[in-house]
């Protein structure tokens, strides 16, 4: 059976849903080991057992977080060699992809990003060219490194829990020499709304909001949705850059994407056209967003959104 190594970075006191997805996928492909960075909290250790992890590896060095990527990649590559992993799984965050990139060079292993599913033989599925093609691809090397997009696997504990053993991996000497050092870290305040990339519903606003995101935020809250935005809106500073959806922002595939005051430029579509249902509100009937909308309203968002918000509140009681 294939050996699978899952990398999990600083889980804190609970595993994120995306980590549980990696463990579930890993188990379907072979025997899983976890390369952890950061403290192994008791609850996290319990989750590893519940998810059938055989071995938990920890780095010999504690300063990996002080550097950008390179030493973490050196650690993950060493961990993979230690357990003889044939498949490595990482999350699809920018940092996850970069670690994967460097691990790939260290292990002479093919790297596939943005993976949504993996077959038993290691064939990975992903979409390319802004969601216009579905492809299947495979590493041609003995080891493959895959980064998994969130929300494509349903987390499922193992049929029988394990009692994972914990082992230390020697982080290769010198891996911090040619690494960028993180000299300051500023935490951002959480919005309290669902995470944009995970959300079941996204309500997004663009230049049509004209500086005031209230109608979008109120509709989002009535629906329990995350708030997204076009680049025009984030560039104008009406909302944080983290909310940007599109080619250079986030890619989202929610059940429902409500687009308000957004024209639907190709770079915006790149981030949202795989949504299950798209609703567009725009006062210009010629806007390209209507070409991809399942339900389009030609109208003023300052009328339509508040009316919809009030109606939802009324129906929900």
């Amino acid at each position: 059976m294939a050996k699978v190594l899952v990398f999990i970075d600083n889980p804190g006191d609970a595993l994120k849903k995306s980590s549980l997805e990696l463990l579930t996928l890993g188990r379907s492909l072979g025997e899983t080991a976890v390369a952890l960075n950061g403290k192994l909290h008791d609850d996290v250790a319990a989750a590893f057992a519940e998810y059938g992890v055989g071995t938990v590896l920890l780095p010999s060095a504690e300063d990996l977080d002080d550097f950008l990527v390179a030493p973490k990649a050196a650690y993950v590559a060493a961990a993979a060699e230690q357990v003889g992993a044939g498949i490595l799984l990482l999350d699809n965050s920018p940092e996850g992809k970069e670690i994967a990139a460097r691990v790939g060079i260290r292990l002479s292993a093919g790297v596939i990003t943005d993976v949504v599913a993996v077959d038993a033989d290691g064939t990975a599925h992903k979409s390319v060219l802004a969601g216009s093609y579905n492809t299947s691809c495979k590493a041609t090397t003995p080891v493959s490194v895959l980064t998994l997009k969130a929300n494509n696997v349903t987390p499922e504990p193992a049929a029988a829990p394990t009692s994972p053993e914990t082992v230390t991996v020697e982080v290769p000497a010198g891996s911090t020499v040619a690494a960028a050092r993180i000299t300051a870290r500023e935490q951002k305040v959480a919005s309290g709304r669902p995470d944009l990339t995970d959300a079941r519903i996204v309500v997004a606003g663009g230049r049509g909001l004209d500086g005031d995101f209230t109608p979008v935020e109120e509709l989002a809250d009535a629906l329990g949705a995350a708030v997204g935005a076009s680049r025009a809106a984030t560039d104008a500073g009406w909302i944080s850059h983290d909310a940007q959806v599109g080619q250079t922002g986030k890619t989202v595939s929610p059940q429902l994407y409500i687009s308000a005051g957004i024209s639907g430029a190709i770079q915006q579509k790149a981030g949202m056209q795989t949504a299950k249902v798209i609703v567009a509100v725009n006062k210009d009937a010629e806007s390209p967003v209507f070409e991809i909308a399942d339900f389009g309203i030609v109208g003023d968002l300052f009328d339509v959104l508040p009316q919809a918000t009030a109606e939802i509140k009324k129906r929900k009681g």
């Binding site: 579905n134 590493a139 041609t140």
Partner: peptide, 21 residues
């Protein structure tokens, strides 16, 4: 180190119902 085994064009999205407020 990777190869594409198959590629399939996704059917383009089509417009649904458009109404005027």
């Amino acid at each position: 180190w990777t190869s594409i085994l198959a590629a399939e064009e996704r059917p383009p999205r089509t417009a649904g119902t458009i109404i005027t407020d």
